[in-house]
Design a protein around this nucleic acid. Structure first.
Length: 390
RNA sequence: GUGGCCAUAGUUAAAUGGUAUAACGUCGGGUUGUGGUUCCGAUAUUACGGGUUCAAUUCCCGUUGGUCACC
């Protein structure tokens, strides 16, 4: 299911087999919230951006259009005409982040839809069933993701609830697969989620409990939900190397390019984050530092060998952020990123794109999103090639 | 030419005898398991000169500019 094909220190290059093909890791999953990335359709993600995988949100798809409709139309892959792997989240995070009225119990999370206010009950079984019928390749367990400032007692109780939910998720997916008579190698993958906040012992305890149940992959959850940057780096440093070596490791929701490089260098294989697309819509564009993009990323990974020992990031980076709306670029005749090489990256000047952004043209937001996704995926490519640098 | 009205941030407006609010714009920053073209911050010697007053953006006079009406 997962095999390591190369390694440089703790950075691993691998292959992950799914129902819709093989993924080369480490990889980044663009977030297609409701089934698409705003302004960039699945076909363009396939042929132009060339993403290996998309992440879709169970919460949104559950409320609209509903998994029964998607299932009836042949599942997400057919529905969206996306032939490659799809990872779905459990819906839990959205219940916590955007539903005002919610009630947590042993049974599950009761919440009100942000669309029409209707009451729903998200249980571990319901989450798994939804993801299963949506046709997901990688299914995530339902977990509770407590906010950054939560007390140790709360985190401990929460992690134990997450374990009990994880056990029910495992059982429900096994039940569904068996009912459909699916062979062991013809099933979607199920990932457990390690919680435990900023406490090293709780993180280890959470992992131990999950391993007892047994999952196809392990995710680090509850990171960057309000803690300091330093704490985030510490948690990753503690827990990433402890996740089972023969299984894929997924860092949920992170991050900035340098954080991804950091976590990958510590052995994380999978990433997702809204930063490239959300920041694009707000006018932040990631720009390479030089024409030697691969060399720059590799040198950054070299520098991480030392800095990651103290859970810090190297001083010198391989990119910088260009704020598309800033006055400095009013007459700038360069392309938005002089070192970008995707088709169309040199078509417009910064001066023109600044104007498009300032007057609120949708085209600018999509152009920046496209660029940032290319940037992220290209960075992942160089992270993978690091294992072959010698 | 005569008379009325007006002059507050880049713009449009608000307010008060105790040094001024907002929206938009402009400038800068944020965004980490994506409802949201988004959130946060900065941005004014109240046209100019003089007077009354402890204190004037506010009241009075003049200048300049705008605007309307009449000749």
């Amino acid at each position: 299911m997962f095999e390591r094909i190369a390694q440089e220190r703790t950075l691993r290059k691998g292959r992950l087999n799914t129902l819709h093909g093989v993924l080369e890791s480490p990889f980044f999953m663009p977030v297609a919230t409701k089934g698409s990335i705003r302004g960039i359709g699945p076909q363009e993600m396939l042929t132009q951006v060339q993403s290996q995988i998309l992440l879709m949100n169970t919460y949104h798809l559950y409320l609209k259009p509903g998994y029964d409709l998607v299932h009836e139309l042949g599942g997400l892959h057919t529905f969206a005409n996306w032939p490659k792997p799809i990872l779905t989240d459990s819906g839990g995070y959205q219940v916590f982040s955007l539903s005002k009225h919610r009630k947590l119990s042993e049974e599950g999370a009761e919440f009100r839809s942000h669309i029409d206010g209707a009451k729903h009950m998200l249980t571990p079984e319901e989450s798994i069933k939804t993801q299963y019928y949506l046709g997901s390749d990688i299914i995530m367990v339902l977990d509770e993701c407590p906010p950054g400032g939560s007390s140790r007692e709360y985190i401990k109780a929460s992690l134990e609830l997450t374990t009990r939910w994880a056990r029910r998720c495992r059982a429900e997916l096994d039940r569904l697969c068996e009912a459909d008579g699916r062979a062991k190698d013809d099933r979607p993958l199920l990932f457990g989620i390690v919680q435990g906040g900023i406490y090293e012992d709780l993180r280890k305890e959470s992992l131990r409990q999950l391993e007892e149940i047994g999952f196809d992959g392990y995710a680090i959850g509850g990171v960057s939900v309000g803690e300091s940057r330093a704490d985030v780096l510490k948690v990753i440093k503690w827990i990433a190397p402890l996740l089972p070596e023969d299984k894929p490791r997924y860092l949920m929701g992170l991050g900035k390019p340098e954080e991804i490089a950091y976590a990958a260098s510590l052995g994380v294989d999978m990433f997702d984050c809204v930063i490239p697309t959300r920041e694009a819509r707000h006018g932040s564009v990631f720009v390479w530092n030089s024409a030697d993009k691969e060399g720059d990323v590799h040198r950054y990974l070299d520098a991480l060998e030392e800095s990651s020992k103290t859970a810090t990031l190297p001083n010198e980076s391989f990119f910088h952020v260009y704020k598309a709306g800033n006055a400095t670029y009013a007459k700038d005749a360069q392309p938005i990123d002089p070192y970008a090489e995707w088709e169309g990256s040199k078509e417009y000047t910064r001066a023109y794109m600044r104007h498009m952004f300032k007057v609120g043209e949708q085209m600018a937001l999509e152009y920046f999103s496209r660029h940032n996704l290319h940037f992220y995926l290209e960075m992942m490519q160089y992270i993978r090639s690091y294992t072959a640098k010698n």
